[in-house]
Amino acid sequence: MTPALSIQGLNVAYPAYGGRSVEAVRGLDLEVGAGEIMALVGEMGCGKTTLARAIMGALKPPGRITAGSIRLGGQDLARLGEAEFRKLRGRDLAMIVPNPRSELDPMRPVGEQIAAVLRAHLGLTRKPARERALATLEAVRIPDPVRRYNAYPHELSGGMAQRVVIAIALACEPRFIISDDATSGLDVTVQAQILDLLARLVSEQRTSMLYITRDIGVAAHFCTRIAVMHRGEVVETADRDAFFSAPRHPYSATLLAAFAHSPALRARWTRPDASAEIPERGCRFALRCVRAMERCATDAPALSVLAPGHAVRCHAPIRHMAVPA
């Protein structure tokens, strides 16, 4: 089956002092299958938002794609001009961001904002656009949609505003949705409701989603696959259950160990002399890795497939005994 989104060898670079450049995304391969929710997990500055912007054709200059392809359907988004992107965004490709209020026009009723997207992309006239916008408000479980259609953003709670942003993203039933930390600003009891809602809509609309997050706990419960990103590279990707029952990359283990608040695990997976620097050569994780060998300092590992659907970028992936269920 062809994946919904296929990224091959993607490089995104920002020029730096002295004619050099910083590769925020480097040699990145990622495939998101139809109907999949792929979690992209990584820490601050790992390049996950840069990747989202590259897919959306919204990189902040002077950042630019220097190599690779981003295939959505028959098109390579890495080579698309702004005029073509305008047709795509909102219709085939949508993004949900964390601060819903900044995404909404404060001067316009929220229902009209949804209808405007439908008129622009699907060519609907006023009345059908209104009807479909109302249906979308209902689909994101906004109580009393007829009344809320005329509400202004400031009249809605944070959770309700986030539902409206999701309604705008989903109104045209896009083929692909990117969520960039979209639930991180919400309270946990509200976050749980929004995640359930997103999962239901993705499955009903048969769309695919890249769910970018710092929270590996959300990834464990909400996604079908996971990719772990470190310093611009995907270091491990697997089906959700395979990953959480047997993570193979030392960085994945470090992330999980940090969540467990276990002194024994922290000692085992933390290097006291860890350095935040990115080495010029070799593995980008080598200076933080408790398992680093001589080879890791000189020789950058490739993302290699260890089992069907499970790939790891490491010379010495973790071996697991049979894990009891």
Binding site: P247, L256, A257, F259, A260, H261, S262, A264, H320, V323
Partner: peptide
Amino acid sequence: FQRHAERLLGQD
């Protein structure tokens, strides 16, 4: 979860 993580990541 702590017990689970210690089982999962405590050996290799």
